[in-house]
Simulated scan of single mutants.
Amino acid sequence: MLRVDGLGKRYGRTPVLSDVAFTVGDGEAVGLVGSSGAGKTTIARCVVGQERPRAGSITYDGVPVGRSRRHVQMVFQDPRSSLNPRWTVRRSLREPARNFGLPAPGADLVTQVGLDPALLDRYPHELSTGQCQRICIARALVTGPRLLVLDEPLSALDLPLQAQILDLLDELRRERGLSYLFVSHDIMVVAALCDRVVVLQNGRVVEEAAATDLLTRPQHPHTRELVADTPRLRYA
């Protein structure tokens, strides 16, 4: 479904990404992990068309990803700053539908992400952080995407809420046949949801493997560091 090939990116004279390549299959969840500054968010922003790579290509079903915006949507790191504070939940959900000429979503979408439809007429400041993130997930689903790019979607949440959102994402993936590109610095979070994991260091892919193999038999020194530095069984 998604193919990233030879991706390169610079900010000024500073290289950020170098020859990054990976794929995401239909119905597959792939994790991007690495320490801060590895280039994870830059890749995510390139995939959804928010940034242009200096080199390489990104295609969705064989078509340049910029032409597939409806089918590739993003969930951001900070749910509160992702929502317009002057808009109700209802308007935030209607906006992407309006942008693509689609029917306004109904209350069933809010229910599907585990919220009461009574929240539709509330504003972000009237919601908890966890509720805001569920709304952001619902908003990403409005256009009927096949691929969600999730950029550190748990980092603003405490551990119990992280587990709840992981369960929600797993359920949505099964019910809707979604594919995920899941960005995180936490390899245990990624392994709890993803089929495969791509490990980045200094803008390069240093290892790629099935999630279970990566945890039990990491090959690259940086992968071993990430596994060793992360508490085990957090999301069992």
Rank of each mutant, 00 (worst) to 15 (best):
S35D: 13
V72Y: 00
T111K: 13
V47E: 08
D78S: 02
G12R: 05
R94I: 07
G34P: 01
P124R: 04
E126F: 07
T111W: 09
V75P: 01
G49M: 03
T88K: 15
E28Q: 14
V30Q: 02
A55L: 00
R3C: 01
V65Q: 02
S36Y: 15
T42W: 01
V89S: 07
L119T: 07
E51M: 06
V48L: 02
G106I: 11
L102A: 10
G8M: 08
P105V: 10
M74I: 13
H125K: 07
V4P: 02
L120M: 11
V47T: 11
P64Y: 06
E126S: 05
V110M: 05
R94L: 09
T23F: 06
I58V: 12
R67M: 08
R69Q: 13
Y60W: 12
G31V: 11
E95F: 07
Q131I: 04
F22C: 09
L83V: 07
G31K: 08
P96T: 05
G27L: 02
R91D: 07
V30C: 03
V20Q: 01
H71E: 14
P105A: 07
L32E: 02
V110G: 06
S81N: 06
G130I: 11
L127I: 04
P103K: 13
L7R: 01
G66A: 10
R86T: 15
S36P: 04
F22A: 03
N84W: 08
S82W: 07
G31D: 06
R98S: 11
V110E: 02
R69F: 07
V20C: 06
L32M: 00
G31Q: 10
G106M: 14
R54Q: 15
P96D: 06
Q112R: 14
D116T: 06
D78R: 12
N84Q: 08
R91L: 11
G106N: 04
R80Q: 11
L83Q: 09
L127H: 05
V110D: 04
H71K: 11
S82P: 10
G31H: 02
I43S: 01
G6C: 12
S36M: 08
H71T: 15
I43Y: 03
L119I: 14
K9W: 00
Q50M: 09
L32T: 05
T59D: 08
L119H: 05
S35C: 09
T23I: 14
G56R: 04
S36G: 12
L2Q: 11
K9E: 00
D116S: 09
Q112K: 13
D61W: 04
S57V: 02
G49C: 07
N84Y: 11
R134G: 01
A29S: 15
V16C: 00
A104R: 11
A44Q: 08
L115Q: 03
F22E: 03
D5E: 15
A107M: 08
G12D: 02
L93P: 02
A97L: 05
V47F: 03
I58H: 01
F100K: 10
A118M: 10
K40V: 07
F76R: 05
Q73C: 10
P64M: 03
A29R: 02
D116R: 09
R13P: 14
T129L: 14
L115M: 10
P117E: 06
A44V: 13
G34F: 00
D26R: 12
R13Y: 10
S128F: 13
N84S: 14
R45W: 04
G62A: 03
E28F: 03
Q50F: 14
P105L: 12
L93A: 01
N99D: 15
P103E: 07
D78V: 05
R80I: 15
Q133S: 12
Y60I: 02
R80T: 15
